[in-house]
Design a protein around this nucleic acid. Structure first.
Lengths: 316, 316
DNA sequence: TCCAAATATGAATAATTGCTCGTGAGCGTA
DNA sequence: TACGCTCACGAGCAATTATTCATATTTGGA
């Protein structure tokens, strides 16, 4: 441990000398008394371990304008657009960074906040970008269960990742994501450990969720929360996307039955009294993001230029 | 203007693609439709214009420990130590970054704050690092006059620099730094525009100041606020440093007379009721920083490892 | 309209950075 | 002790980035 933290210390120092003080790796090597290659490794370790945080302090005009038009067209309370990296469809680093920024903004508030979180790859990436901070006065509530179908801890659950860097009172949900029957879901929700968490989720000041798409890459299916048969039934019933397990159609209306009568997640908090911010981008998600905004399942959105342009281009 | 902002927009986008999305400059050139050289220039423009902000999210153990020992030894309420770049004595980028961080922390507070600021190169560098933000609810007060001896605006005044990026209610002092006589100083302080500003400075929640050293590089002298004769008289009287024009000796006691009876700056706010943070580092400043902490002229300090080690090594 | 100064561009080249790979030290195990 | 494994190290080389310089192109005046 001492070794490890010493290594990180060196990495941080190398990163500082490189990015902040503007030394070359050669100079750093001399100053730290290591070889140039080692200095290079320290710098790259600092980057890969997220010790080095970069952000661009300039509002890119196109992003601002798209955000305004999005708020206008879809009546969003909050909208933030990150640049798109053309030709790199899969990178989520832009929206993750923007989301981290926004989550941090909430965490910095001195008044105690109730922050609810869903799941998802992008959300998880965002949470990993959070700086170390001490926020004991806030509460972070997971809207969804953290038990994977095989009984292990669900990988894309976000609450635990957050506690790596942020000291906050957290309320995970020791539940599966989708119960085996409506009755079981009822029973689970009666548990003493769950009731106060559900209660808190209803009072969330702000909620951050991902949006899962349908299709053969559907995260609900890929992660094993639903079977292929259920996936097909849901698709046949018009499902295009899902938020914390609640499947909805192209108009953002929740699908009746199938899996929705046994989703063990808390309901999406009210958009009347709180801000529900979705973080999602990319072509595969166009339809489900469109559904979520159309149906008012969310009133905040963090996405990228390409997605915003698609959403603004489509029929209202 | 459109061109300029467009250029900055491109630079920001190039910087984003480079530092955040991790593209090479070649890829950026293709994506932005410019030559590789132009892409390189855009990236470097983004850096030099401060559009790219880097910071290290890892507490370097040695810096933390030094800060603790500083607080202990000198009874400081606040102390922050930035890494030293060995062999680059002159760089102030480390403490400037740390200071910017702390100023930003105050500016982010939702409750209205009264923030007083002094002058100095390091403080100015720190303020230039502030991100764009909207803080209409705070007030920023200059403790010192902003009129240079030749009648122009004093270059190292900080309030105007701050308004470049931060939208805040600012209260500059349209005064010289040192009046020609005690009587003139009295008269100036009776002006209707000055009285409320002086009043506010007394109620500051936090104050950020630089510390000027004496010697032939003394900023007070170099910037023409005092004559060579005055500099020598002050030195002979034991002056080792100066905060917003108030000269003090090695024990941090204000010098009597000479220039101190006509300094037109507001007094340094009370350390009983507010936090007075000095930002200073470097060998030339060892003596004056030591004086300021010994005499309790300040109760907060942002400096670097080398300076902290010197201060901790000396006789209390 | 024309000229001069300032500015931007791309080619060439120099400097820096990143990667691969072979070596050897450290370490646990048979 | 010998063996095999992992891992950090640095040499060498490939890739990327920064700078310089000569040449256009724009801009602001007369």
């Amino acid at each position: 441990m001492a070794l490890r933290s010493n290594r990180f210390d060196d990495a941080a120092r190398a990163g500082w000398l490189y990015y902040v003080a503007g030394n070359t790796q050669d100079q750093i090597a001399t100053k730290l008394g290591v070889s140039r290659q080692s200095a290079q490794r320290l710098v790259s370790l600092a980057v890969s371990e997220g010790l080095v945080r970069v952000h661009i302090d300039h509002p890119i005009a196109n992003c601002l304008e798209l955000a305004n038009r999005m708020r206008e067209k879809f009546g969003l309370v909050f909208c933030e657009i990150a640049p798109t990296d053309p030709g790199n469809e899969s990178t989520i680093v832009g929206v993750a960074e923007a989301a981290a920024q926004e989550i941090e903004r909430w965490l910095r508030k001195p008044e105690p906040q109730i922050i609810a979180v869903g799941t998802g790859r992008t959300l998880k990436a965002a949470v990993e970008l959070l700086p170390r901070m001490d926020c004991r006065h806030h509460k972070v509530i997971s809207l969804t269960g953290n038990i994977a179908p095989d009984g292990s801890a669900a990988y894309y659950n976000v609450v635990f990742t957050m506690s790596d860097s942020v000291n906050v009172r957290s309320f995970p949900m020791p539940l599966p994501v989708i119960a085996s029957s409506p009755g079981e879901r009822e029973m689970l929700h009666q548990q003493a450990m769950i009731i106060p968490t559900l209660e808190l989720s209803r009072k969330a000041d702000v909620t951050f969720v991902g949006i899962g798409e349908f299709g053969n890459q559907a995260p609900l299916f890929v992660d094993g929360f639903i079977t292929e048969a259920e996936l097909e039934m849901l698709s046949a019933a018009g499902a295009v996307g899902e938020i914390v397990g609640w499947s909805f159609d192209a108009d953002g209306k929740l699908i009746e039955g199938i899996t929705n009568d046994r989703v063990a997640s808390a309901p999406i908090p009210s958009r009347e009294t709180s801000l529900v911010i979705a973080i999602a981008k990319g072509r595969k998600k166009f339809a489900c993001i469109a559904g979520a905004v159309r149906g008012g399942l969310i009133n905040g959105l963090i996405t990228d230029e390409e997605t915003a342009e698609y959403l603004l281009g489509m029929e209202a």
